[in-house]
Amino acid sequence: MSIPARRVETFGTTIFTEINNLAQQYNALNLGQGKPDFDAPGDVVGEMVKALQAGKYNQYAPGPGTPSLRKAVADHAARFYNLDIDPARGVIVTAGATEGVLSAVLGLVDPGDEVIVIEPFYDSYVPDIIMANARPVYVPLHPPTWTLDPDELRAAFSPRTRALLLNTPHNPSGRVFSREELTFIAELCIEHDVTVISDEVYEHLLFGSAQHIPIATLPGMFERTVTVSSSGKSFNATGWKVGWVYGHPDLLEGVARAHQFVTFAVHHPAQEAVAYALGLPDSYYQEFQAMYQAKLALLTDALDSSGLQYRVPEGTYFVMVNYARVFEGTPLEFTHHLIKEIGVACIPPESFYSQEHVAIVQGYARLSFCKNDDTLRQVKERLVKLQR
């Protein structure tokens, strides 16, 4: 009898699928998966329609991406971060950031290498490392401030360390890594000759005085960093699955070699629309942040009357809450309780930690506020029941 390959034997159904199904079954307001319940900007959608109807974008796109989108990605990096990216040799368009991270791992990490993973982590990171026959080495962020222990990070480096997976702004904690933190990470990576795979999909989701600093902009880091981002978060278009990886051409060559055999090419008309979107004026990004600032205020207002403790995020559209005052049990048990008895769905973060560190996240759950305002107001009405 045929059986699954050993490389996938530890991969179960993602927690997102499980919670989405449960939320639908109990008609819960779904603050679980980071999937907006409102549409992409109308003019961006219009560009997709025009591309579909133009008669020249419905066949395979060039494998590395369309010239227009690769140039738009390079122009965006120059505009916001003063980075000089070669659009022809320094940008690869991928099927979302998830594929971008996979292709980066497959193209830059050898079997037996070690990859440092900062916990809590996006759920695809570790399977990517396992499929590359490499070994994840875990370094946790510590609540309630979600910060690294410098000694723990330093101890994670070894002669076998090939790469470090970084995510800032950070999902699910909402942290935006400071220049001091990034400098410390960079110094260790330079000392140990380690490549950084930097997931920056929430680069435009910032609050208050938080500033996103790409680690590629730090001294000595451009030549050892590949940066991953996507259109899904910045343009409310998660269903388009258009992402990109950029960096030094020598590193991008490895990503490109893997990418061509993972998806080869990405949806052609969507690339034209995203190229347009990346060129939107500063006012779009300002209004985007203001919209999410208002949504964050609605959720924190709901949390203030719920008994749940939280730290206001510096970025992303997630809030980590501590439920210890209102519920005894594991995060998964709390999630089931919140869905079935309160009518609100969240994500238990146990699956974002290794078994050796999962105790750190006991008492926590993740809520997403990329939802319409009416939904977030209804959340307040339901969460107040936690106090009863």
Score class of each variant (00 low, 15 high):
Pro4Ile: 13
Glu9Phe: 10
Ile19His: 12
Asn21Asp: 13
Leu22Trp: 14
Leu29Trp: 12
Gly34Met: 10
Ala40Val: 15
Pro41Ala: 13
Gly46Lys: 12
Val49Cys: 04
Lys50Asp: 12
Leu52Thr: 06
Arg70Ile: 08
Leu83Asn: 01
Ile85Gly: 05
Ala97Pro: 03
Gly100Arg: 07
Val109Ser: 11
Asp110Tyr: 09
Pro111Met: 12
Phe121Met: 02
Pro127Trp: 06
Pro127Ser: 11
Arg154Phe: 01
Phe157Leu: 02
Asn167Val: 06
Asn167Cys: 14
His170Lys: 09
Ser178Val: 02
Ile185Asn: 09
Cys189Gly: 07
Ser198Ile: 00
Asp199Tyr: 13
Asp199Trp: 09
Glu203His: 10
Glu203Gly: 00
Phe207Met: 08
His212Asp: 01
Thr217Pro: 02
Met221Ser: 03
Phe222Ala: 15
Ser229Trp: 02
Ser229Arg: 07
Thr238Asn: 14
Gly243Gln: 06
Asp250Ser: 14
Arg257Gly: 01
Val262Trp: 04
Val262Gln: 06
Thr263Glu: 06
Phe264Cys: 10
His268Ser: 03
Val274Asn: 03
Ala275Phe: 10
Ala277Glu: 08
Gly279Ala: 08
Ser283Thr: 14
Glu287Thr: 06
Lys295Leu: 05
Leu296Glu: 04
Leu298Asp: 00
Leu299Cys: 00
Ala302Arg: 01
Leu303Cys: 11
Asp304Gln: 10
Tyr310Asp: 04
Val326Thr: 09
Phe327Tyr: 15
Glu328His: 14
Leu338Thr: 03
Val344Pro: 15
Cys346Gln: 03
Cys346Thr: 01
Glu350Gln: 13
Tyr353Cys: 06
Ser354Asn: 06
Ser354Gly: 12
Asp373Ile: 00
